[in-house]
Design a protein around this nucleic acid. Structure first.
Lengths: 200, 200
DNA sequence: TGCGCCCTATGACAGCCGTCATGATACTGA
DNA sequence: TCAGTATCATGACGGCTGTCATAGGGCGCA
């Protein structure tokens, strides 16, 4: 089942936001990138650009959250440091293969339109929550106390987002590898019990 | 000595970038915000908007760096955790007093125009360097080995930038206080010698 | 007085923006 | 076959953008 025009437009919006920011992403660019009919814009997104951006942000948040479970599935012996390393590696891989042109769409929406559109600001907050949730849950499953897991998840996402910014500016993945290396031991030190519970 | 129109425009550009992003910051807004003559734009900034943005980013980087020394001056017994806490507190204070409308101008420039204007990307990289330098130097003065100090500075700035994003989205300073609390012990653990050298 | 330079003023330009009005087409179900 | 709804097409609108051409003040200096 190939995705319909509606989904393609949401996806393209996220892609273009990553590269150019929200304001610089024109609706005409979106329909061109999505190879979608222009008339469909006002049909599928009567809320205009704001709705489109909000949906793109929501999609990005759910995608980021789903990646966490994917990362865990690929680990035989999960550990906080390994999870964070996987999150960082996803970005180093992308930067190395397709270049530094694209960043995080959620960050773009935060910086570029959080003060103008209140609904977008809320969408971004939801996206961060949809991302932090799975991370915190994964840490808890690894034996990190619940309270600490939430804080650690915030720390992980903060450090990752910041490192993405720096990496793009420097056109060098060094910031990402650095934060992954430095944060690893701290994250592992949060684990208090050694039995791996088979949750889920 | 009150700053001239040129400096006011650079400063206003940084301010507006923080709130609206680069693309959404129009030159007409800048001159209005700076209460500067419109004709001065092409006189002082023949390189157009790109030059203006680059100078604003450069100013922001130097400002961030200078704040580090200011923070240190206010500490009787400097420690990495205290420095980071001060950096985070600057943002929590601003968010609490003037609201969450304004973020980091360097982050704005990274997200909003790093893929379009190569010179701006370079300006952002320089700004991060002008920020990381004083941080790393401060850590070294506190007894952190040089190699480790550079990595720790990158980690600190990454975590701070990311937490700023999350705080703006959530309209809550929690992310900032969380990363400051969690990162503190790790940063202090980097100190290997206890004698405080009186460098500089 | 007059030349020359720094600064400012003003208006125009082409281009892109998001939005909307209007109408054509296609498919669905009775 | 006909009605109705979903989807798409197209062109226009006002507004804002960055840039530029042109010219006017103001001041120092010879």
């Amino acid at each position: 089942m190939t995705p319909g025009p509606r989904e393609r437009m949401v996806f393209s919006t996220a892609q273009l936001m990553r590269r150019d920011g929200v304001t610089a992403t024109g609706l005409r660019h979106v329909v061109a990138h999505a190879e979608a009919p222009r008339g469909s814009l006002q049909h599928y997104f009567p809320g205009g650009k704001e709705q489109l951006v909000n949906e793109a942000v929501g999609w990005a948040g759910r995608y980021a959250g789903s990646r966490i479970d994917r990362f865990l599935a690929g680990m035989s012996r999960p550990a906080p440091s390994k999870l964070f390393a996987a999150m960082a590696r996803q970005w180093t891989d992308e930067f190395r293969t397709v270049g530094f042109g694209q960043g995080c769409p959620v960050a773009a929406a935060t910086v570029d339109s959080s003060s103008s559109a209140e609904s977008t600001r809320a969408a971004v907050a939801d996206a961060f929550a949809a991302w932090r949730g799975p991370v915190a849950r994964a840490l808890a499953d690894m034996g990190v106390p619940a309270r600490k897991a939430a804080a650690a998840a915030t720390l992980m996402i903060s450090a990752l987002e910041g490192a993405i910014l720096i990496a793009r500016a420097e056109q060098d993945v060094r910031a990402l590898t650095t934060v992954a290396r430095e944060l690893g031991p701290l994250l592992d030190s949060y684990v208090t019990r050694t039995d791996r519970s088979m949750s889920g």
